[in-house]
Write a protein that binds this DNA or RNA. Structure first.
Lengths: 109, 109
DNA sequence: AAAATTACTTTGACAGGTAGAGTAATGTTT
DNA sequence: AAACATTACTCTACCTGTCAAAGTAATTTT
């Protein structure tokens, strides 16, 4: 299980990417992250909803209410055009971060 | 210039790696990071000394005073055996973090 | 002698992440 | 039908890592 303070700062990317694929709601995203990472990483509930707030404020995602078929009411999120551009930036940034950190990890693996 | 909150959590690794190569003092490390990354990343002074404090408390580095030949007194740091083991863990962790984040960035580059 | 550079320290603030507790609807078990 | 589990979201108080800003002090350059 990976410490979350090492993933810190990359949650925006992860969540935006999942919402880019299709509109999703919080609980679903949380499940999807656990699934895709084989439980090597799990996002905490409180964190997830904090990220939503941040991203909505930045206008990179938008919310709308969905059905209530399996428990509480679902709040769906869609990515905005601004969000797509933002995600693009984050992807570029990630590849630069990898390069930089790898610079220092070289020869130690 | 890479945002530092995206490097966050990896400073321990970067600094430990530089001290592993040879004993170093703060100012030197700061210069070395700028140099090696071609100024794509610069560690802030306050941050650097905060990292030293954290690492010393964890007993992964030790300090001793050096000469005073070029300005202020230099405080050198050496890595402890515990520090080498710790760095080893961090390197493994980094490769897992890369895998996980790449999982979500796939197909977007 | 003044200014620039080298070198370290401390304080207070901020932002992202989190535990924990709470609310509510639906589905399952007994 | 009552009890329990699951789905789903929200809020508050707190912790930690990073950093701006200001300070101290010695040496080198102008």
């Amino acid at each position: 299980m990976v410490r979350s303070d090492i993933i810190r700062g990359h949650l925006d990317s992860i969540i935006l990417r999942l919402i880019l694929e299709k509109d999703r709601y919080g609980y679903e995203i949380s499940q999807e992250i656990s699934l895709r990472t084989n439980n090597r990483f799990q996002i905490k509930e409180a964190t997830l909803y904090a990220v939503f707030q941040r991203l909505e404020k930045k206008e990179v995602i938008e919310a709308y209410y969905g059905d209530v078929s399996h428990g509480g009411k679902r709040k769906y999120y869609r990515i905005t055009p601004l969000g797509k551009a933002y995600l693009n930036e984050l992807v570029k940034e990630w590849s630069e971060v990898k390069e930089i950190i790898d610079l220092f990890m070289e020869g130690l693996e």
